[in-house]
Amino acid sequence: MASQKKVAETPAPAATRPSILPIDASPVQELGREADLKAFRDMLLIRRFEEKSGQLYGMGLIGGFCHLYIGQEAVVVGMQLAMREGDQVITGYRDHGHMLACGMDPRGVMAELTGRRGGYSKGKGGSMHMFSREKHFYGGHGIVGAQVSLGTGLAFANKYRANGNVSLTYFGDGAANQGQVYESFNMAALWKLPVVYIIENNRYAMGTSVQRASAQVDLSKRGASFNIPGELVDGMDVRAVKAAADRVLEYCRSGEGPYILEMKTYRYRGHSMSDPAKYRTREEVEKVRVESDPIEQSRARILANGWADEEALKKMDAEVRKIVNEAAEFATYDPEPDASELYTDILR
């Protein structure tokens, strides 16, 4: 459609990618050695961190809700590769990956999961509520869709201050059906706010598939009536994410207004830790793992290009595991917040 103008696309080799869906994804651009290795390591950190979170949950160290990001790592890591200092990130409750990608300390994140005083929110926020002004991470929000209006407000502040920063506002396919998302789209387009709406379409809103919840399943078109351009991106390929992010961040930064990126992705684990897993087959999950895993794709590419050998990647994995184990150790033995913290931070 005419209004769905795409920003100038960089020509790239038509790489054949295994994909979970036959999508007309945006083009892939090779990252090069350094960036590909960094992306691999960042994704691996999220994967190992989340695996450890699952273990600690099973041990009863993490309570309540805990939404793991396993399978979706390429989305946030690819976006992060394209960001610049000052750009803000805000997301919903599946937020551990975003925090790690923003450079927040794994110890502080893990200690928040276990509700300890060394956690990012002194143990008062939990899995869904962490923030870092220093790293420009604005949460961590538990009400589905609420972060979309907030992220649009971050973009409003950027425009008000003319600071050239862009708000990266993440939400899922479930949130894409919330009314305030469209209220926000309208204002963002009306006022040309610098915001990228990143829809992490992992195909299931809790147990309800996109097909069962959405009249228009092509979520990249959800901005059409506001003239917000959108495109589909293979969210399992960090190169595709980075290529889209480069173009779109430039578009938003230059004052053109908002843009929608629908990331086709997949979560391997349940919606939260208590997921009956009755809404999809084991085979479906296994197929995605085998054919499209973002980290395995990255590993194969690095080896094929000779950017690192098996030994070097193993060593990297060991380093990442060490960081995660230390974070878990810290989160296990760090004391709970002092009782006096009950009544602090209500007002300032």
């Binding site: 604005y138 649009t152 407000g153 971050l154 305030q180 209220e183 926000s184 309208n186 204002m187």
Partner: peptide
């Protein structure tokens, strides 16, 4: 730029306002 007419969209502009406040405005 400082006196901003919004559409009739209370949920949206309340959230947008909070976001702008989190950013320091």
């Amino acid at each position: 730029s400082r006196v901003v007419d919004t559409p009739i969209t209370e949920h949206g502009f309340a959230g947008l306002g909070v976001g702008a406040a989190l950013a320091g405005l």
